[in-house]
Amino acid sequence: MNRFHFIIIGSVLTLFSSMVGLVLLPIRGLGNFEAAPDPETGELVPPPLSALEARGRDVYVSMGCMYCHSQQVHPPSVRTDIDRMWGERRTVPRDYMQQGVAQMGTMRTGPDLSNIGVRNPSQDWHLIHLYDPQTTSPGSIMPPYRFLFRTQPIGESGPSPDALRLVDEFAPPKGYEVVPTDDALALVAYLQSLKLSTYEVPEAARARYESKRQ
């Protein structure tokens, strides 16, 4: 080949051709969701995040939780997600419309979190698990997020209502308590909001049918 124009134009065109299928079509087909009524309850789904939950989502993004945890439930024909109670149906595109930055994830070093708010609804559990995963899951390789908490002396009026109930080697020194920062509370609120199985979306009937098929 002895003309650079040929190479340059050809390179640009081949890349553009792929953009049709992998960029333009997704924008057109997956980029315009609006909240739709739940077929059973009539409420708009997926439910919007509160301000606290949205802040928690930003903490999730800032900490890079996605790099170990996925948020996509696959049908039983592909994976055991539903058997593991990671959801009752596969996720559909509409489920992600609330996420500013899609956090679907590509690694399952830790479990999928699409339904974690249903599997682990307790704020206390999440707070001590985040503080140090060894408290609830000995041997876990999840990092501790102690820096999202404050160890402070117990005040004259007694322990604060937020103080974590930590025991054994995790408990702070005598006279001290561990309280969550606002970021920790926000992050937990976000995790508690991940409740895939509590709402139906219009596409869910078909998705649920696919989930039941073996």
């Binding site: 065109l13 051709s17 049709v20 299928g21």
Partner: peptide
């Protein structure tokens, strides 16, 4: 319609 659109673009390319 999306599939037809892609098909036409692919044929042109």
């Amino acid at each position: 319609t999306a599939a037809i659109f892609v098909l036409i673009v692919m044929l042109i390319l």
